[in-house]
């Protein structure tokens, strides 16, 4: 497995934990959880953006950056 596939799987599993009544407004559109999962699986532009956000967050979580005051 390449790291990208690993990350893709992690992101998909995290997205699946979101309840179905939640929608996200990002860019010029609003998306359901199912649409986000599909976009990540299909590697669309939106999917790559979601993966980037998750990767950035996981890195900052691991480094402890999220607990630092500005």
């Amino acid at each position: 497995m390449t790291p990208n596939v690993d990350l893709q799987n992690i992101v998909v599993e995290r997205l699946r934990r979101l309840p179905s009544h939640l929608q996200i407004s990002i860019g010029n559109s609003s998306y359901s959880n199912e649409e986000l999962v599909s976009s990540v699986k299909d590697g669309t532009k939106l999917g790559k953006q979601i993966m980037g956000i998750q990767l950035d967050y996981l890195q900052d979580l691991a480094s402890g950056k999220i607990y630092l005051d500005e």
Binding site: L15, R17, P19, L22, I24, I53, D56, Y57, L58, E70
Partner: peptide, 30 residues
Amino acid sequence: SKQSMKKNFLKLLTSNSSMDGREMAPYLWS
């Protein structure tokens, strides 16, 4: 504004927060 976002972000991350809350945290962080 960032302090307020950070406060909400940490609220979402806390163990008392619901699962959906924790999964929204990365986007507020963004």
